[in-house]
């Protein structure tokens, strides 16, 4: 593992649109960037057995997840020519319609930013030890399953 500082990924609750706007604005000083790619994961109000999902409650194996996010970040920097990269994931309760995952990659040209963004999102879904509990209107719940 590299000696680079492990960046904080987890945010308590939903990721606000203002936080995302602010993250974009911060890049205006980095004038060698020609392309940004952003993925936003939003909590969907699936209907399961006639009950609508109203929120997802996320828990994680924090220590292992932080290491995994770090490894994904390092690998993406090696694989793609990126100027910068930000990953944020919610913990705790996020209501349907709110954002729970924010992946933001920037590069000189669009190809690197776009491909890296997809790569990172796929690896997070498959490898990050995070679990989502889908909570219905009556507070009953089921454990979420990711689609491949």
């Amino acid at each position: 593992m590299s000696e680079k500082k492990i960046k904080k990924v987890f945010i308590e609750g939903a990721i606000s649109p203002l936080f995302i706007a602010d993250a974009i604005a911060k890049h205006s000083t980095k004038k060698d960037i020609g392309a940004h790619s952003i993925f936003l994961g939003q909590v969907r109000n699936d209907v399961i057995n006639n009950k609508e999902v109203k929120a997802i409650d996320y828990t994680a194996y924090n220590e292992m997840a932080e290491e995994k996010f770090h490894e994904i970040r390092e690998t993406a920097f090696e694989k793609y020519s990126l100027t910068c990269m930000h990953i944020y994931h919610s913990l705790g309760r996020v209501n349907s319609g709110e954002i729970s995952l924010f992946v933001f990659t920037s590069s000189k040209h669009r190809k690197d930013a776009m491909e890296a963004c997809t790569y990172i999102v796929n690896r997070i879904k498959e490898e990050a030890p995070v679990w989502g509990k889908e909570i219905f209107e009556d507070e009953s719940y089921i454990w979420k399953q990711n689609t491949p």
């Binding site: 995952l101 999102v121 997070i124 990050a128 030890p129 995070v130 679990w131 989502g132 990711n146």
Partner: peptide
């Protein structure tokens, strides 16, 4: 030792 069911983050 961590017991981990299939992940469902994101």
């Amino acid at each position: 030792v961590a017991l981990m069911p299939p992940f469902s983050g994101g």
